[in-house]
Design a protein around this nucleic acid. Structure first.
Lengths: 125, 125
DNA sequence: CTAAAACCTGACGTTAACGTCAGAGGCAAG
DNA sequence: CTTGCCTCTGACGTTAACGTCAGGTTTTAG
């Protein structure tokens, strides 16, 4: 599962990446601008992506949803872009994991709070 | 547990509310501006709050953390401000509860994703 | 009485992840 | 060849919950 380009791989344009991942074309360009995604260019200047880009964008969306910033994601990209990680990166991974876990617990508390209100308003309309 | 003011209740100023709830004074003023919180005024114009305001602000924070907007919170306030709720409000409560639940599941998926990466980078440094 | 601390009302600044618009070029079909 | 869709590069607009600063009044501690 090499990450390096295969000369025979079919390259796709930005619209196909966007549709495939369920985001806007603008978003894909934004990811490139933030250093999350790189693309080759056709002679005329159009961006050309490998298939992998689609799942990568989906992954970005998932991390965004989890509250990570594009900056943080950029810093953590080497962790699965290559097998090479240092201690600092592994530490950052755990920090983010724990941050997500904490947010989950906050949300569960909020949900339980709303459940109480719902129970009261249902019994007591 | 009436919500109406008790003439003998000790009123507090905005700073005490902010410290008590762990937010900024600016935030408390913002909540008033958004219609989340009301205050009496002293003759000189200073805001005076009942003790209840502190737990109310804490509750706002919890709902903000859960992704509710101040607008949504305003719409749902009658659900526990008074015992009087209509069907539309109870429906909104459930919509928000389900939204939170969905976010929890998204975050759990993101957390599990990071756990995988952590496992790999730990075994495979 | 005085100085510090707290409060007041505007009103502009911040941040992140895009949306949206303008103007111009590129590409497959008929 | 031209029609229609896709893509390009700027560059300004959006949103939510405040931060922050200015300039002035009020309350409190000593």
């Amino acid at each position: 599962m090499s990450v390096t380009a295969d000369a025979t791989e079919r390259l796709i344009r930005i619209g196909e990446v966007a549709r495939g991942a369920g985001v806007s074309v603008r978003a894909v360009r934004y990811y490139e601008q933030q250093g999350l995604l790189t693309a080759e260019r056709s002679p005329s200047g159009q961006r050309l992506y490998r298939q992998e880009a689609i799942s990568l964008v989906r992954f970005f969306q998932q991390m965004f949803a989890a509250g990570l910033t594009s900056r943080r994601i950029t810093e953590l990209l080497p962790c699965w872009d290559s097998g090479h990680t240092d201690a600092a990166q592994r530490a950052m991974l755990r920090v983010e994991r724990d941050r997500i876990q904490a947010r989950i617990e906050d949300l569960e508390a909020a949900r339980d709070r709303l459940d109480e209100v719902i129970a009261i308003t249902d019994t007591h309309p």
